[in-house]
Every structure is written in C-alpha cells, then in structure tokens.
Nucleic acid binder design. Structure first.
Lengths: 195, 195, 195, 195
DNA sequence: TATGAATGAGCGTTCATTCAT
DNA sequence: TATGAATGAACGCTCATTCAT
C-alpha cells in the first residue's frame, strides 16, 4: 500500500519537473523504487497516472483553500485570502505543484489528454471564485462586474503569476505579493474601506 | 522557396493544434505536401522548426502591437491598445497562435526545450508593457506601482485569458472585452478622467 | 536469460559478416528471434552491443591462448604455440571471429567507435607476445630484438594472415601453416636447435 | 576539370579520416567546395567515388614502388627497397593513404563493396612481391620458400605495421624500421652476405 | 558544367504496455 | 502484490540519389 503512495508522489514530482511527454513510466518506477509493472498494476496507464497525480493535488488544495476563506469578513477579504492560499500552496508544494499546472484545462502540455474528470475539479475552483465575487458584490466590498468572466480572468491572473514563478526563467522578486494586491485592486469597490 | 513557407505554416498549425510532443515531423511534411526529408533540409531539427515557427509568429505580432500603441494619447490608453492588439492578434491568427503559447517561456509544453533565443523576444513584450506603465505613471493616467512586477502580471493576465479561450473547454462569452477592462481597471488612476 | 545469449551470438555473426555499419539492430533481432526492443533492453545501444560482442570473443580467446602456451619448453616454442592457438581459434570460430577483427584497435571498420575498454584487452595480447619474446631472449631460443616493436609486428603479421583468409577474395592454401613458420623464422635464434 | 580533382582529393581525405560509412557525399562536396550534385555528375555513386579515390592512390603508389626496386642488385635488396618504398609512401601521403587501407581487399571496412576492379590492382602488388621472391631464390639471396603464400604474408606484415601506425592508438617508435628489418630477416638466406 | 531543392527508404532508438512467474 | 523480460509501433533523423534549372 505504501508503494502506491510512493508511486503517486514520484509521478507528481516527475510530471512537475519534466511534463507529461518528458516523463516515462520507467522514470516514475525508478524514483519510487518499484518495478515498472507495479505502476501499471496500480494505475493502469500513463494518462490515468497523470490524472490521479493531478487529482490528489487538487483535492488537497481545495481543502486548504476552503479553510482559508472560511472566516473572511467580506467578499473582498475572501478573495484576498483565496489568492494568498493558492499562491502559498504552490510554494509549500513546489516540487509537485507544476503537475497541477500541466494537467489543468488551461495547460498546453498535451491537448490529446482527456481532462473531463479533472476539468470538473478545476471548475470547482472557478465556482469558488464566482461565489466569492457574488458575496462581495452583495456586501458592497466588490464593484459590480460580470462574475462568470471575472472569475476566469482572476484564475487566469493567478496562473499567470504561478507560471512566471515556476516555469519562466525570469526572477521577479515580490511577484506573488504584488499579484495579490493587483487582483484585489482590480475588483475592489473603492468606496469600501477594506484593507 | 515557397515550400519552405508551406512547411513553416504547416508547422505553426500543427504545433498549435497538437503541441510539441504531439506533432510529428511527418505530420508537418504531409500537411505541407513535401517529403519529410525536406523539412530537415530547411529546418535541421524538430526543435529548431518549433523555434522558427514561434519566432516568425512573435515577430509579426511585435510589429502589429508596436503600430497599435503608436498613437495612444497617454499610458493608460496605450495599455488598453496593447491588450486589444494582443487579443485581436490571437483571433486573427487563431489556427497558428497557440504555437506562440507553447514556445513561450511561460509554457509548460516541454521544459527541455532551449528557449533562450525566443525568450529574448518575449522579454521584448514585457519591456513594452513596462515602458507603457512608466509613461502612464509619468502622465498621471496610471497609479504608482512597481513596473517590473506589474508588467509580468499584466502579461500573465493576458495569457490567462488567451489560455482560457484557446485551450480550455469552457465557453466564456465576452471574455476578451472583460479582460481588457479588468486589466486597465487594475492600474488606472481613478483621479484621471480617461476612457 | 537464454535470449540475451542468443542476441549476443547473432550480433557476433552479423558483425562478422557485414561489419558495424552493415549490420542493423533489426538484423540482429531477427536472427536471434526476438523483438528489436529486447536488444536495446539488454545492450542499450548498437555501439555497446558491438563492444560486448567483441569482449566476449576476446575473453574466450585469451583463455584458450593462455592454456595453449602454458606448457611450452622455451620462448620460441611458446611463440609457435601462441600463433597456432590464435590461428586455430579463428578457424574454430569462423562465423564469429571477424567481429574481433572489426572491433580491434587495428581495424578500419569505424574510426568513430570508442575502443578504449576493448583496446585494453587487445593490449593484453600484445603483452603476452612481449613476455614470450623476453622469455625466448633469456633462454636463448630467440635472437636479441626490440620486444615492444616486435610484439606489435608479430601481431600485425598474424592479423595479416587472418585478414587474407577471412576478408580477401584470394584462396591461398597452406597460408596459416606458412604464417606460423615465417613468424617463428623471423625471430628464432639459428644457433638454437629448436624445431 | 580542376573541380574533379578537388573532389577526388577531398574524397581521399574524408574516406581516410572517417571510413566509407562515416563519409557522406555532402562532406566530400563541402570540403571540395562544390555542390553535391557535381560529385555525382563526375563520379556517379559513392561506391564508385570510393573506388576511384583508391585507384588513383594505388596507381601512384605502384609507380613509386616500381621505380624504387628497379636498381636493386639482388632479390633480397629488392624486397628491402620494396618495403621501404611502401612504408615511405604511407608517410608521404598520410592524409590520404588510409583510404587505400580501407578499399583494399584485406579491409574490414565494408564487405558489401564490390572490390573486383581494385582487387586486380592489389593483386599486382602481390605479384611484384612474388617476382622479387623468385628472383631472390634464384640469385641465392632468399631462402627456398613457397612464394605464393609468402608474398601474401609479407604484404600482410606490411599492412600490419601500417595499421598499427595509422589506426591503432599505440605509439610505437621505430616501428617502420623494425618492420623492414624483420620482414627481410624472415626470408633472407643467412649464407648470403647481404646487408 | 554546376547548383541545391527534393525525395523517401531505412536507420537507431524510445517507451507504453503486456504477461508469465 | 510484485517483478522485469518481452513486444512492436512510432519517432526523429540521415543520406545516397535524382532532376529541373
């Protein structure tokens, strides 16, 4: 049983480092310290292993995020807490997180992959942002705006920052802090006294 | 001569559709209507073909963008024009543009690829945004903010919108218009009367 | 397990018959009756397979030769035994032996090949000849001569005979017997009463 | 016309350096400073170019050798002159000579090559050695021995020395001088007072 | 004579997957 | 549960050769 978890962790690290095409089942098996056959025994196929690796990450992340926004006093603060929790999660899981980037529906890693199942989980993230926005509009901390589009754009902005940090070869100090500020600024109601 | 261009176009479309790993040299050759050897004759290797395909796209795009922002009256308007030109370019080149996403330094397509040369061209885009921001801060149309980080974040936001439109399986009507509005809103000086 | 040996034997025969460039991995796999992937599974690359094929041959040969010269009463007789054992080995292993010719450092088969490891084993052969010569000079059965150069020349003469027999399209009956006689004659001390 | 000679020289140097399989027609064309098509225009095929390159070399060498042995007083001296001329030729043409090794019927370079025509020219070399041996036996400077086999063995010994010098990674100072001495010693009539 | 664009068969190699043990 | 031998389709790439100009 422990070996199944070893394999999943090895997969997350390898997919994070080398992408889907750049990761071989043998690499995963070797890093996990098992025979390659066992990887198939537990995970059936490379595609499935990839999705399982991503699923486990996103489940963990959703839990962390839900806790982080639970106590926010208003929508605007909830949004700030959301962004912060998301960005912190990427840092706390720096060795595995890029797998989540790669298996997301916004990724360019491998367009042939069937992302239906995992797509639903990413949809949950968007839905959380939407509900935060709605709450903020209701309580006056966020300006009137189209929640559906804005939710996608906010998520896109977060991913933009994460991609810059994890994938691009540029060193941009203070990027994450500025990202949070900028996102909040782009939706906050100026007549509100928050933050 | 014409065949060289046929190959480049076929490459741009294939890389856009199927990604780096998902595109084979034979696919490119077939779509271009040439023997596979000719692709190597002109472009030496798959990696080089990929970079050439991206280079040609980004050169064209840079030219379009520079013209678009040339006549803007102030920094804030220039930023709006920049975003609009970028997004329009992705629509006008919908069949080839994703190649640019994939060869960018912010991509997760293939981490082993050497993006040095093309990275410099993407750096140019960031630099343009930076100069727009500086101009806007000077002329009062944009609030005081750290230009380096903000430039990256704005570019990340644009890419977020583009990824949502081109890669993700969600249909979000009006996304591009809202993206422009949101980006401008996140930096505009409210005391200014622009737009 | 048995398949690994099948592959090695098939490689030895193919490299012997067709040379390095003229042998394809598919030819080897087919003759061995396995899938081509298995050849790489066991031997990693064509170059490594070539070297392994040669190594196995030379190890076997060195053993045979060392036994053959063990009981010689003097240096001159030892040299005769050496030459005879070498030549007999080429006949007993006629279908595989040319591989040894081709992977030797004296070969013109493929100058790009890294012959370092196998070169050391060929060096052992030269060393054996040197020690035989020294012994013969000491016991008076061989004339005074520069052992280093002579060892190389004797080995070269043996190879000359072997090349004539295996590679050249000339039929020269009695070549091997005459080769042995001539080599011994070229170093024997005439004042000695041997043979 | 000069270009044809440029190509031939470039071929001789490339085949010498890289062998038959390791030399491409493009390499030859580039070194000769011509388009690849011209190589085919003059030489039809790679195999033919190889043979032409070898032929030109062997013709030149045969001429040199014939002159060298013309004035020898007896067979044994003629043999010494032959060996010396051969070895000197390899040094004077160090950059091209290995091509001759590679296209000889004693080579392991490429067993599929049709060496019929060039084989005849190498046969001439063997015949020269045979006639020298016969002359020496007649005039008493060389011991009674089977001329056919011995001619092959002497040529093999010479090639052994040349291979050691040109192909093998060993540095053996004085090898050529010792080769000549050893070859002569292996056939000279001791009752004769020569050299 | 001279060019180099164009062809396409064939190569070494990789790797997801299967399966006997 | 666990191994790793075994498969074979598919890939990037090479290069001798042809041919229109």
């Amino acid at each position: 049983m422990a070996k199944k978890e070893d394999i999943l962790l090895a997969a997350q690290e390898n997919f994070a480092r080398s992408g889907y095409a750049g990761t071989t089942m043998k690499m995963v098996a070797e890093q996990a310290g098992v025979a390659s056959g066992l990887v198939f025994h537990y995970f059936d196929s490379k595609e499935n292993l990839f999705m399982m690796a991503g699923s486990e990450l996103i489940d963990t992340m959703l839990e962390v995020i839900r806790q982080a926004i639970a106590d926010a006093p208003d929508g605007c603060e909830a949004l700030g807490a959301f962004v912060q929790a998301y960005l912190e999660f990427t840092i706390d899981n720096a060795r595995t997180f890029p797998t989540l980037l790669r298996c997301s529906p916004f990724s360019d890693d491998n367009p042939d992959l069937d992302r239906k199942k995992i797509g639903a989980k990413f949809r949950e993230i968007i839905d959380i942002i939407e509900s935060i926005l709605r709450r903020g509009i209701l309580d006056g901390s966020i300006v009137e705006l189209p929640v559906a589009q804005t939710a996608f754009l906010i998520y896109g902005s977060i991913l933009g920052a994460v991609r810059t940090k994890f994938l691009a070869p540029y060193d941009v100090p203070g990027l994450y802090g500025e990202a949070r500020r900028m996102i909040v600024r782009s939706v906050r109601n100026p007549e509100c006294d928050a933050r």
